[in-house]
Design a protein around this nucleic acid. Structure first.
Lengths: 338, 338
DNA sequence: TTGTAAGCGTTATCAT
DNA sequence: ATGATAACGCTTACAA
């Protein structure tokens, strides 16, 4: 199955390959009828310009790469859909690679994409790692990269972030305002900046409302339901349960709720729970789970637009977009009489 | 930032470009010291072979494409991870594109990947559509394609399928064996072969156990929680509730459970529910949801291996792998006294 | 063992 | 308006 090339078409019509090329690239002078004839014949012959050949010798590939830590959770999947939407409409192809929360695989993914000459990259790093050195070196060399989500404010590059601190503050304040006195935060990972930002927001709210030291705890838990379950198990064993849990994400929250319910605690009557990075499940579980919704769609769109701007305008101005979310209060964190 | 090319390295060392090329491609004769010198210098100069140039003029790109209907649900995300694992270990790069359940976008994705000269494709089509004609034309031309999941047994191509009929049969039989007399199946879509297979399995179990016509229903519902909710709403309104629901997937099941609970029905005491294509949530919700687990990991691995075989052995023998699953029985479908 | 040069499928520059 | 040809970066037959 040999591919039909520009030469085949040229030979067929007894024209030069340049004419065929011109027919396919409007920008050149070519007689209208010639062009139409060529286009028609090419169509019949099943000719398709070879993008690989096009890339070679041209600086631009119209491919962009997206590297995410994972897409088993809805969050990045939704972000990717938005990114794809923007790029497809601009004639770009989006190549997605996931790093399985592994910095080594992440670096490999990024290099693969760069070597394959994508015009730019959107990277959501897994965790703090020295990969950042490599990425920033590329940025310095004017390679278009937009970072997303799990990145420090201080990183000198274009990026789209969620205002974790602020919304963490709101989530916490909501619990306080509901009258919960003792609040534990099931946090993510120490080396995840989003987790740290959320801890800061948590602390800020506690300070503002003068919650005493003995009335809160920050427990490094993780990102998985299983980890939520284990922590609750532990706390139950130690007879150390608060009025409310503020969790790193919905998965941890649901793990926590499950374990609490299994042990006869009612949510929210006995103990309230709130999640973060809302998932579709939040509305489906019992009780419905309060959570902070991150604007996945907007995040993807913003990142894509930032990258396109860098790619097309050669504007290497570094821009940081910080997005806001929504605090969706549902049954799981609404105070009721015991 | 001009990229270092093979020429730069050759010039630097006063050797020919072929020598440099040879140094990077073990298979040719080259003196050991020369090779090492070249490799070292190339490294220092930051030279990286340009994969685009490599692809041009060579038949192989060491890229493969994966096209899935969506990856917002865990199912395909997990399958992709397995696929990536196999291919990465063999030195291939995996390019993922999602079709948003849209056959037109799907065709576009497939064409994009083919034109970009991926060595082969794994396709999980969205729904029955005439795209299949195009795909099968490629297959006939010995283009390596492996189909996955949502494909008819009869499709003349290599494919990896789940035995939907069989496991649907088991799920239904389980409900019957629990003593549920009246069972409704919230089915997927008419034009989804997996849904149809599941309906067949459902029917088979009913026949085997001689369930009378008035004691079952098949209701086309869809794939979303929202759709499960709506159907239940409707049935409640019509005072037409069965003993048990067997749902197209976990999302529909969870939607159903939510609506039932909201209306004061207890699951499983009043009405049992079982899902399909188990998600992580199944274990976290109350009651824990019974479901059929599809072997996502195995599915990805099998598809990847089949594709590699086609690519590397030029064995165009068409192979069909049918996978089995697990019926995970949990609280939501276990009979208890009313 | 190493070098030369053709070729992969395009685009773009320069003639015509 | 059209054609001839170099160039993109690499591999590979062939020559040395």
């Amino acid at each position: 199955m040999k591919r039909t090339t520009i030469k085949d078409v040229a030979r067929e019509l007894n024209v030069s390959i340049s004419s065929v090329s011109r027919a396919f690239n409007d920008k050149y002078d070519i007689r209208k009828e010639t062009r139409e004839l060529i286009l028609r014949t090419a169509e019949e012959m099943g000719y398709i310009p070879n993008p690989i050949a096009k890339k070679l010798g041209q600086s631009k590939t119209f491919n962009v790469g997206v590297v995410v830590p994972e897409f088993v959770n809805e969050f990045y999947a939704e972000v990717i859909i938005a990114i794809q939407e923007v790029f497809l409409s601009k004639g770009y192809q989006v190549l997605v690679m996931q790093s399985d929360e592994n910095p080594d695989l992440e670096l490999k993914n990024v290099k693969t994409l760069i070597h394959n000459m994508v015009d730019g990259l959107i990277i959501a790093p897994t965790t703090e790692s020295n990969n950042m050195d490599y990425y920033l070196k590329q940025v310095k060399n004017d390679y278009p990269i937009v970072f997303m989500s799990r990145v420090e404010q201080s990183v000198p590059a274009s990026k789209v972030l969620f205002n974790n601190q602020k919304w963490s503050f709101f989530a916490t304040e909501h619990l306080i305002s509901q009258g919960y006195k003792k609040i534990y935060h099931l946090a993510g990972h120490k080396n995840l900046c989003v987790s740290n930002e959320r801890i800061k927001g948590f602390r800020k709210a506690l300070n503002k409302h003068k919650i005493a030291k003995e009335n809160y705890k920050i427990i490094e838990t993780g990102l998985l339901a299983k980890e939520g379950i284990e922590v609750i198990e532990d706390l139950i064993y130690q007879h150390d349960l608060p009025d409310a849990f503020y969790c790193e994400n919905d998965l941890v929250a649901m793990g926590a709720i499950k374990k609490l319910k299994d042990n006869g605690y009612r949510v929210p009557e006995d103990i309230a729970v709130i999640g973060f990075t809302e998932t579709r499940m939040a509305e489906l579980v019992t009780p419905q789970l309060s959570s902070v919704k991150q604007p996945t769609f907007e995040m993807g769109k913003s990142a894509a637009k930032l990258l396109i701007k860098q790619i097309e305008n050669d504007s290497f101005e570094q821009e940081t977009i910080v997005l806001n979310g929504e605090l969706n209060i549902r049954k799981s964190s609404i105070r009721s009489e015991k």
